[in-house]
């Protein structure tokens, strides 16, 4: 069989697989499967703690800002792995799969299809920034995966939504919206620190305590491509 031929010089290749090969797995098998949110939350909390441990060396130097700034991309990396796979899975399941090339269509796809398949509902709003033409905001008023997550104050502006930022980033990457960056926007920090493309930062909002917004900032090249499409 061809799949065995890849293990060059391996001695363990003789074991005959008893279970069906992964590629023979029915694509729809777990489409509607569910597991408990608790189980997810326990694993997710361990991921956050692991991330914290990994960045803690740096965090000691300059406690708040650096710590949370490093923590976000670290957690986003976890999300990135999920996002790439989710994209592939979703596209295989689409009746008429296509690669989105327009910014708005792409975002609508994330907002509706991806969000719905991951979290069981579409995101609550998708907005275009009025200040910057390269920025969009995707809001979920009550992100299901953050339900059981509460973070200590020391982590400052860090929010576990960085995981979802990673997912969205990966989906954009996978669709060749190059170098886009997604920042987490949640509750309670100043709006001014919008400079860096990878830093997670937050804005105040008292009405929806769990509300989370992803700030999606597209790369210049993406906007240029947009203009080409528009014939400008």
């Amino acid at each position: 069989m061809s799949r065995d031929s890849s293990s060059v010089g391996g001695t363990a290749a003789a074991t005959a697989p008893t279970a069906p090969h992964i590629l023979d797995r029915n694509l729809a098998k777990t489409r509607t499967s569910e597991t408990s949110l608790s189980a997810f939350a326990y694993v997710f909390a361990e991921m956050i703690q692991y991330s914290q441990k990994r960045v803690s060396g740096v965090e000691d130097l300059e406690k708040r800002s650096v710590g949370s700034r490093l923590l976000s991309p670290f957690l986003a990396n976890f999300g990135h792995r999920v996002g790439l796979r989710e994209l592939e899975l979703t596209l295989w399941r689409e009746k008429n799969p296509k690669r989105e090339t327009r910014v708005l269509q792409m975002l609508i796809f994330i907002n509706s299809v991806i969000w719905k398949s991951l979290f069981g509902k579409p995101a609550d709003s998708l907005q275009k920034s009025t200040d910057n033409e390269d920025e969009y905001m995707l809001t979920d008023n009550d992100p299901v995966i953050l339900k059981y997550i509460s973070l200590p104050k020391e982590l400052g502006s860090f929010n576990a939504g960085a995981f979802m930022a990673g997912i969205v980033e990966a989906v954009l990457d996978g669709c060749h919206f190059v170098s886009s960056s997604v920042n987490y926007l949640g509750v309670d920090t100043d709006k001014k620190k919008k400079a860096s493309r990878v830093t997670a930062h937050s804005t105040a909002s008292d009405t929806a305590p769990n509300s989370m917004t992803l700030l999606i900032k597209f790369d210049k090249s993406v906007l240029q491509r947009e203009r080409t499409f528009d014939g400008k």
């Binding site: 777990t30 499967s33 976890f78 999920v82």
Partner: peptide
């Protein structure tokens, strides 16, 4: 409270891979 089992599987996979 339930959640999509695939999200769970992919998330755990992400942890192991990391």
């Amino acid at each position: 409270d339930k959640i999509n089992a695939e999200l769970f599987a992919l998330t755990y996979g992400s942890l192991v891979a990391t």
